[in-house]
């Protein structure tokens, strides 16, 4: 950067300070507050809150929901990104918009749509009730709401990268005799692996942390349909702040790990694909 485009040192220092202050106060302080509040009454209390049977069951349920929702969206996301980036077909732009649609929808609405389909007075509600199948206020509802909310993550991470990489490597593989699966497995997938992992991580973080959508379909039955974020809410509303913040701290840790891993993956991906991008 030349002198002409450089700001004077005093201004630079002032702006840096301003941003440090802004981000520190506005973004970092809440994170600090979570851990401080969690440990306010000591490690023992915090750990006890996590070891509580209801908390443990919430953790188990959260893991289970993510374990189903994330693979579904990974598979769908890869397929969608593959179609959008590697082929021309009528409706390609429409597909791109539709895949991103769930991001534009409120989490509460993301839960609501499933209640409208499967709730007691939903479209299929009476039928489900007659057959004793529970979707809303049960695991399937939690999974469906989570899938809806985290739907675009993987596709969204992959599409720009795959479009930037173009189609020539795939075409080269085809002229060399590779089948569709071979093209994908040996050429496309290795080229997108870091971005894919990054997308999956983000998808997972959101799946485990989702609150609004699952809160609508959960029914809040302790030890049964409570995920971790819902458990935080219940404890908080019962004024068990130490416990609420302890579980929240665990979720915050997950967020930090995700951010760290994402930064690492971006560096890996950047180095590997630097020449081509």
């Amino acid at each position: 950067m030349s002198a002409a485009t450089e700001d004077p040192p005093w201004l630079r220092r002032l702006l840096i300070l301003a941003v440090v202050g802004l981000l520190g106060l506005f973004l970092l302080l809440p994170l600090v507050a979570v851990f401080t509040e969690a440990l306010r009454r000591g490690w023992a209390v915090a750990l006890a809150a996590l070891a509580d049977p209801d908390a443990l069951s919430a953790i188990r349920l959260t893991l289970l929901v993510a374990a189903i929702a994330v693979p579904v969206n990974t598979l769908g996301g890869i397929a969608a990104a593959w179609c959008i980036a590697k082929y021309d077909f009528p409706g390609r732009r429409l597909l791109t918009v539709l895949v991103e649609l769930p991001f534009a929808v409120s989490p509460v609405i993301s839960g609501l749509v499933w209640v409208l389909l499967f709730g007691a007075q939903g479209l299929f509600g009476p039928w489900l009730q007659r057959h004793g199948i529970g979707i809303i206020f049960a695991l399937p509802g939690l999974v469906l709401a989570t899938i809806f909310v985290t739907f675009p993550f993987v596709a969204r991470t992959l599409v720009p990268l795959m479009q930037a990489q173009g189609r020539e490597e795939e075409e080269a593989a085809a002229t060399l005799g590779a089948s569709g699966w071979q093209v994908f497995r040996r050429v496309t997938l290795p080229n997108i692996r870091w971005a894919l992992l990054s997308g999956v991580l983000l998808c997972n973080a959101r799946a485990m942390g989702e609150f609004g959508a699952v809160s609508v379909v959960s029914g809040h039955v302790r030890g049964e349909t409570n995920t971790m974020p819902l458990h935080v809410e219940i404890l908080y509303n019962e004024y068990q702040f130490a416990g609420a913040f302890a579980v929240a701290a665990l979720l915050a840790l997950l967020a930090l790990v995700t951010l760290g891993a994402k930064a690492l993956l971006e560096r890996l991906g950047g180095r590997r694909m630097g020449g081509a991008l």
Binding site: E168, E169, E171, A172, A173, A174, T175, L176, G177, A178, S179, R186, V187, P190, N191, R272, M273, G275, A276
Partner: peptide, 21 residues
Amino acid sequence: VPARERNIGFVFQSYALFRHM
């Protein structure tokens, strides 16, 4: 006859080497 069955060697302008291999 799809490209993969034509047994034709094609060299792309940008070479299109598999960058991860």
